[in-house]
Simulated assay, not measured.
Amino acid sequence: MSRGRYEALDSDAERLPSGLERVGYDADTQTYSYRDGDGNYWEGEEGNRYGNIHPAGQRPPPSTPISPKARYDDWRYLAPWFVLVVVVLLVLWRFVTSTPAPLSCAEGLENYVVAKGDTCWNIADDRGWTVDGLKEVNDGLNCDKLMPGDQLCVHVA
């Protein structure tokens, strides 16, 4: 069985200060006991094998609760990211929901909005026109990529 890369560093000799050795574990309180070079006993925090230690029999120093101001400070650093996300979403929403400006057609022609199922041939035929005539008036028209909502200029029927 192969050992992990850092398994050798996960030992008392590597993790504890020099002269300190682990001598016991109390399963009821879930605390480890240590002895220093002078024979004094120490205890670790509940549930931690390594970490902060205190003299045995004494209460550990109270942990400092997180103040509401510290919680606010954490969010304050995230606020610019939230603002950026909101701005990007608003710009995308504006782009997606914006309606295109009406197409301005030459005199004698009217604006036509392509509906579902329309083809260049149907549109031209309904107005007594040819597809080539439709393409001539609508410069750059690609009939293969005609989509509902596209705007064309057509002869007044």
Rank of each mutant, 00 (worst) to 15 (best):
T29Y: 07
M147C: 01
G57A: 01
Y34S: 14
L20G: 00
A70M: 11
E21P: 02
V154W: 06
A79S: 01
R3E: 12
D150F: 10
S63N: 15
S98M: 14
K135T: 11
D132G: 10
Y112Q: 05
S33N: 04
D10H: 13
G128M: 07
N138Y: 04
G24R: 15
K116W: 12
G19N: 06
V85Q: 00
V88H: 04
E110F: 07
Y34F: 14
A27M: 13
Y6G: 02
T64D: 12
S2W: 15
G44I: 15
R59L: 11
A101Y: 07
Y41I: 10
W129T: 14
V114Q: 05
E7R: 05
S98C: 09
L103R: 12
A106C: 05
E107P: 04
V137E: 03
W81S: 01
L141A: 00
D73N: 03
N48P: 03
A106K: 13
T119W: 10
R59F: 08
V88F: 04
T29A: 13
F95W: 08
A106I: 08
Q151K: 12
V87A: 07
R71F: 05
V156E: 02
D139C: 07
P60D: 06
R59D: 12
S2N: 14
V91N: 03
A157D: 07
S18I: 15
V154Y: 00
A101G: 01
V91L: 02
C120A: 04
G149P: 13
L9W: 03
D38M: 08
V96D: 07
R71D: 02
N52L: 10
L134G: 00
L103T: 06
W121D: 09
M1T: 08
T119Q: 08
N40E: 15
V86T: 07
R49M: 07
P62Q: 09
G44D: 00
R5T: 13
P102S: 04
C105Q: 03
A106F: 04
F82W: 08
P55S: 05
Y41Q: 07
D36W: 11
D73Q: 13
R22Y: 08
V137W: 00
E110V: 14
S11E: 11
L92T: 08
E45K: 06
G47N: 14
W93A: 11
G133A: 08
I123C: 06
A124S: 09
W75R: 07
T29E: 11
T64G: 11
I66F: 08
G108N: 09
M147N: 09
A56Q: 13
Y77A: 10
D26S: 12
D150R: 07
N142Q: 06
S18A: 07
D150A: 04
V86D: 05
W121V: 11
P68K: 13
T130F: 15
V86Y: 06
W93Y: 14
Q151L: 03
M147A: 10
A101T: 09
G128L: 09
P65W: 06
W121C: 12
L141Y: 03
N52T: 14
D144G: 09
R49E: 03
L141M: 14
E46W: 14
